[in-house]
Nucleic acid binder design. Structure first.
Lengths: 335, 335
DNA sequence: ATCGTTTCCGAAATCGTTTTTGTGCCTTGA
DNA sequence: TCAAGGCACAAAAACGATTTCGGAAACGAT
């Protein structure tokens, strides 16, 4: 007995036309105080709630955007979501989150009329639209901005991984020593963003080129994306080295594995063995891990603002914003 | 030039009526193979995509449900979301996540025509509908199921915290010793679920009643919901005791603080000082922490299935499902 | 008194689907 | 031969809002 009452009923009870009720409800002018009150009274009395589906149908607007992202629960996406949310809230927009929790979901969301696309705009986090939509267009030509990944055809906000690697490199080279890089194997068969680890390595190399130290091929250890990966890398490094070293792990998880394994072998990072990670995970501070911190919240907030802009002017020129990471120095890289 | 093409255009190109196109698209009978092919050809040629808003408007169905939850990023909500997602995917429903990231969002989501309620059903996680909607009804009378909280008026899935406390108590009392409980102060001014810590304590007390050991009033230490809270509790306990003890922490975070502080003082849990936590956080295993594990994924999956059922039969009787937690014994409580 | 302007409001068109109803035509069976 | 029924499709009526258009009344200025 709630969804049954329509704007018609309100109009009838108030003794006015539906158009008048609509005008009152949407705060338009051209309505006298008197009728406005009558309408409000009728609305109150009937407990009328506008049918949102009808409204969306007519206006084509939902006042909401969808955020598609590979997963949730990681520190990265938590911070990103918070940033997006704040950016959106400023302008009375709401965000629905649609994580690609399973291959099945991914398949479903390829359907252009899936629920996520029932929104005014779209934020794709770490998701390559070409791969996600298999070369097709964005469903319903939804205004879209990419975050944590770039694409010539869409607005995007990213942070510069090359620069992050460079920062790590410059820092470690304050004290020249044999250098190792521990990084992750990339897979290109998912619609997720990729190539970042290689970029970080590239930046690191660039820093090395400015100094006297070399990075031999076999000093780049490629492992799996796991804590165990880091431990294995530590064993590998110890096999190759006995003395001071500078180590760059292209993500904190690997750095953690390294630290734990070193500790197990009685080696404490910082001093002789210096280590820099990447990501600034929440536990990094407790671990005393030097690391490269990305402005993830800013990235999210900026993406939200870009989307809002695009909603206003759909045909404006595509913009790409590249944010800079920041080096956080802690004990693990002290000389 | 995509959203511009409607079912009309398809009908015209195919040389049939719109109703026929609709029948084809929805797989209804009463269409010959020949016209079916014609329509499909026209659809293909025009790149026609049905207007989802219109469809929703007409049918009143979206094939999606909304999940309202206090936050994301915690282990609890991660597991819950995974459970829900799996339960929903089985029947071709999609879930939009709407975390109450800020007080502002909470306020917005009180509006019955906010985007989250533009769905076929609603899952409220840890959220009390009375408080959330300030005594009002669920927006648009959306079929709703509650999870991690109960309410007489709605379907719900919860796990029994009293039972969890009881399990911890029975286990610790295998070896009688002075007993402490570390718990968290509750706040009732939020729309979030609450009272669970008290319930866990109640269950623990119930176990004690079956044995010879007493729980003195000042052996219940109430602290803040933080790692530091656990550390302070450890200090407090050490002040009161010198010898063996059984400790029940009503959540793992407190247990972690306890363990760390004890370690700092040279005391290792397990053996003399036995400890049981609650939640089975991801790190609990590495910590060797005995703890009470809730079947969170099951809870989510069950909630999803209940909602699906209710969507089919909106007037069916309200059901409440109470799941049982399970004790995971590890080193921290070995004798 | 006349003429414009403004203010307020109603009638009707409209959005793109789904669903109901109607209508010829073709079969079938008695 | 005729009634009954099924088939394939068309026509039109919803669904519930917003928006456009236009007209009556009220008002002020000439």
């Amino acid at each position: 007995m709630n969804t049954r009452v329509s704007i018609q009923d309100v109009a009838q009870l108030a003794g006015v036309a539906v158009s008048t009720v609509s005008r009152v409800l949407n705060g338009y002018r051209d309505v006298s105080e008197e009728t406005r009150a009558k309408v409000h009274r009728a609305v109150e009395q009937l407990g009328y709630r506008p049918n949102q589906a009808a409204r969306t149908f007519r206006t084509g607007k939902t006042q909401s955007v969808s955020v598609l992202l590979p997963m949730i629960g990681t520190d990265f996406y938590n911070r990103l979501i918070n940033g997006i949310d704040q950016g959106l809230a400023q302008r009375d927009y709401d965000a629905g989150l649609f994580p690609l929790l399973s291959p099945r979901r991914l398949e479903r969301y390829r359907n252009p009329s899936a629920p996520p696309y029932n929104a005014d705009g779209l934020i794709l986090a770490s998701l390559n639209p070409d791969r996600l939509f298999e070369g097709g267009k964005i469903p319903a030509d939804l205004p879209t901005v990419l975050v944590d990944i770039a694409h010539t055809a869409y607005d995007s906000v990213t942070v510069d991984h090359v620069e992050g690697g460079y920062l790590a490199g410059r820092h470690l080279l304050e004290r020249p020593a044999p250098t190792f890089v521990v990084m992750i194997e990339e897979r290109f068969d998912t619609p997720f963003a990729s190539g970042v680890f290689r970029e970080r390595l590239r930046g690191f190399r660039r820093a090395l080129e400015e100094g006297p130290v070399k990075l031999p091929k076999d000093h780049v250890v490629t492992v799996e994306f796991s804590w165990d990966g880091g431990r294995l890398a530590a064993q590998e490094i110890l096999r190759r080295l006995d003395g001071p070293a500078n180590i760059f792990a292209t993500c904190d998880l690997l750095a953690q594995g390294l630290i734990d394994e070193f500790a197990h072998k009685g080696i404490k990072v910082g001093g002789e063995v210096r280590l820099v990670g990447y990501d600034d995970q929440p536990w990094a501070e407790a671990y005393g891990l030097s690391t490269v911190k990305q402005p993830i919240e800013s990235m999210g907030g900026l993406a939200a603002r870009l989307l809002l802009q695009r909603l206003e002017r759909p045909t404006a020129e595509v913009t790409h914003r590249v944010l800079s990471p920041r080096l956080v120095v802690r004990e693990s890289s002290r000389v």
